[in-house]
């Protein structure tokens, strides 16, 4: 074959990943989610050295690199530390608009992310003023809890 001058449309082969996994969440998250599901309570773990109440709870404090032992109930009220309102549709993610906030639940040293519901998000500037940093929220527990993080969400006080 000599010089080939043909121009061909690029050929595309399609592929897909759809793989099921069973993640063991470990003893610490099992305790957290069981209490969330069965009692509607949110609990963090206290580091014996720096005394921080870590939420999400961790088996080890990554700053002090020691095992945590003590469980501490936090919330259900808390303070918004940061938020976003998503207006763009993304494949595989919820239909917009939806709001997500990091909230420091009362008694915790760290903030935890979850959806904020019960708020009109149709006008971005108006919704963003409602969700300002420093605003108070409460954790609302759904009835049909399954032991996952979306067993609760935040609502403005």
């Amino acid at each position: 074959m000599g010089q080939d001058e043909r121009v061909e449309a690029p050929l595309i082969h399609s592929g897909e990943w759809n793989i099921h996994y069973d993640y063991a969440v470990g003893e610490t998250a099992t305790r957290f989610f069981s209490r969330l599901r069965d009692e509607g309570k949110i609990a963090g773990k206290r580091c014996p050295e720096c005394k921080a109440v870590l939420l999400p709870p961790r088996a080890y404090c990554e700053r002090c690199f020691v095992k945590t032992e003590e469980w501490v109930d936090v919330g259900p009220e808390g303070t918004i530390e940061a938020f976003t309102i998503v207006y763009e549709p993304f494949d595989g993610l919820p239909q917009p608009p939806y709001a997500v906030a990091y909230v420091t639940l009362d008694g915790a040293s760290t903030a935890m992310a979850n959806f904020v519901r019960g708020l009109d998000l149709s006008v971005p500037e108006v919704a963003a003023r409602e969700l300002a940093v420093g605003k108070r929220v409460e954790a609302v527990f759904i009835d049909a809890r399954k032991g996952t993080i979306t067993d609760f969400h935040y609502r403005l006080k």
Binding site: A29, P56, F83, T84, L93, V100, M112, N114, I149
Partner: peptide, 29 residues
């Protein structure tokens, strides 16, 4: 963003729809 959502903590954060854009939105806020 779907792919990057799967790179989030699978236990506590993936299912609250975090992605690379909104993690920076939190910084901007």
């Amino acid at each position: 963003q779907w792919v990057l959502n799967t790179a989030m903590d699978p236990i506590y954060e993936r299912s609250v729809a975090l992605n690379a854009i909104n993690m920076c939105s939190f910084q901007a806020v």
